[in-house]
Design a protein around this nucleic acid. Structure first.
Lengths: 245, 245
DNA sequence: CAGTGGTCTAGACCACGGC
DNA sequence: CCGTGGTCTAGACCACTGA
């Protein structure tokens, strides 16, 4: 009877340990309890415990090595693969307020790059959403999302300035299951510059994203451009627990 | 008696499946054999098979879902967390030739940003290595690495133009175990522009990297600047097999 | 040397997918 | 409905760590 109705044990263990680490119960460099101790404490076998530790390792929180217990590496999971969490959630987690100013929501024929990414035909319709995203009130990013028609049509019933589009889509049964990101740099176009309050030609960090739902279907293509003085991407590239060769 | 002396079974299974996928034995969208079939074929229990599948999922090669076998998502693992493999290896894997033109290898007192990243004192010595990295003969990136003294001193016995610094360090017992990357964009400084053959002020993709060895010690800090017209970072952000909350 | 994590097995139960 | 993957257990062996 630990907490909610029925959560997989390894998730519960991971959550509990993550909380302790972020609460700074352990100093950086300090060891976690041995696996056997964790098994005893949580009343589970080694499987779930090891799965939980693998999760924390992937989040960059701990360091695993053979022969000795896991060691705390970092107190916050901000810098993670999960840095690619949706803008709103990311801001909230970092104690900042996210805002949004919608420039347009339009149903139209698909553009060239989106057509390729979404695997559509030239005469297919899509829904484009262009928004300026604010961090603590300041323009930090300009986001150009293109959704396949079936998903995009849901957005006309949604106030795109009000909150998290991700949460809204999830409530309508569309989950972001995996995303593919391509990162590079571009010079700010005139529109970009005007909306972000910077000089044309100054460097922007660009993220082009392809999102898939739980069934592996691509449903979003996005071109996001960030002001590098306000936002940077941080990624922990821990050798995956099982990738060695 | 499958292959080498004694390789963990899950690594062998992952390698075999990876090879089949990249060899295009399965079309994209096609299902892999069921876990039970894989168990039978490789003569192992479900544990190793599932660990192998988790690896491939993390590499973005397959899609896992409950109730049905894994589905092939991509034929090549180029776009992976492992995109952060060392430059030389990355180039080789993509069928391109990597080159290197060393600008300097110098032992000197640590610079401000490296001091912070490496957790050193202002009067500590480090070894700076500045190189222009070439792709098929063309300048693609300028790399400024700073190594802690004990590691950097190894580099004076190494021809930094000859091959992979990573491989060389590994041969001397220094392994890159995990790295932390911060990505943003900067305008090309005059030096950058000259060495990369571009205009000053044009946008560059910057990667600042902190590398740790197998014991979790930070030993390298690097500031790499890429020409965005030649290189982009590609990352697959699959929901980790065990991270759900 | 004893304790630890890395790996593996055999068997089990459940929730979900598709027929 | 049966087969699938998601999860879990109990027990085992080995390689490595550190006193």
């Amino acid at each position: 009877m630990t907490s909610s109705t029925s959560q997989p044990r390894h998730i519960h263990v991971a959550g509990e340990l993550r909380q302790r680490i972020m609460r700074r119960d352990y100093a950086i460099g300090q060891s976690l309890p041995a696996e056997s101790a964790l098994c005893a404490e949580f009343g589970v076998s080694r499987g779930p415990v090891r799965q939980a530790l693998a999760t924390l390792k992937n989040e960059g929180l701990i360091q695993l090595s053979q022969g000795k217990p896991a060691v705390v590496r970092s107190h916050d999971a901000t810098q993670t693969l999960d840095t690619f969490t949706p803008f709103t959630q990311w801001a909230r987690r970092n104690g900042r307020t996210a805002g949004s100013r919608t420039l347009e929501v339009a149903r139209r024929r698909v553009s060239e790059p989106a057509m390729v990414a979404l695997d559509l035909n030239a005469d297919d319709f899509v829904v484009d959403v262009v928004r300026v995203r604010l961090l603590d009130g300041e323009p930090a990013m300009i986001e150009r999302s293109t959704f396949i028609d079936s998903v995009g049509s849901l957005l006309f019933e949604f106030d795109t300035d009000s909150g998290s589009m991700t949460d809204y889509l999830a409530s309508r049964g569309v989950y972001f299951d995996s995303m593919e990101h391509v990162l590079d740099a571009v010079a700010a176009a005139r529109v970009d510059a005007e909306n972000l309050g910077i000089d044309p030609g100054s460097p922007l960090l660009r993220e082009r994203r392809t999102s898939r739902d739980q069934d592996g279907r691509v449903f979003e293509y996005a071109d996001d451009r960030y002001r590098p003085d306000l936002v940077a991407f941080s990624i922990v590239n821990a050798r995956t627990i099982d990738a060695r060769s």
